[in-house]
């Protein structure tokens, strides 16, 4: 699972939909992998307004990366290619291959195996 995906996915349990604690899901025992992908500055500029920066800081802390700046790069900062490249590296090229995603509200854990997260729920949680 890419970091960009972790910035958008929420807990699938119905009761958690209304709770702010259900986002972001927290990584546990994560194993990371870098995958080279083509750099697309335009996509980063497109997606950046939708990124939840606080959640991204939390996630990158949990994954053990150096801390991100306090606020989201905006305006002129988006013209800086190095900033965009760093974001591309973090959001798209960094993948969690094994581990768990845990909801902060209900405590349900979603397993990640070979990069695929299992979001199938038992029917009593749907």
């Amino acid at each position: 699972m890419k970091v960009i995906t972790a910035n958008f996915v929420t807990c699938a349990v119905k009761e958690c939909k209304t709770s702010p604690a259900s986002f972001p899901l927290h990584f546990q025992d994560a194993e990371l992998e870098q995958q080279e992908l083509d750099f697309q500055p335009e996509f980063i500029r497109n997606i950046l307004p939708r990124i939840d920066w606080e959640a991204l800081r939390t996630i990158s802390n949990e994954l053990g990366f150096p801390s991100l700046p306090d606020s989201k790069p905006e305006g002129d900062a988006l013209e800086n290619e190095q900033t965009l490249r760093d974001l591309h590296r973090l959001l798209l090229e960094t993948q969690v291959t094994e581990g768990k995603l845990t909801c902060g509200n209900c405590g349900h854990s979603y397993m990640i195996k070979e990069g695929i997260a299992n979001f199938l729920l038992p029917s009593h949680l749907v």
Partner: peptide
């Protein structure tokens, strides 16, 4: 290249509002 999820779409789509284009 895409990110994959094992999930049942009949159980809902577990993403934040306004995620996708």
């Amino acid at each position: 290249e895409g990110d994959l999820f094992l999930a049942d779409i009949g159980q809902g789509v577990p993403f934040r509002p306004g995620t996708f284009d």
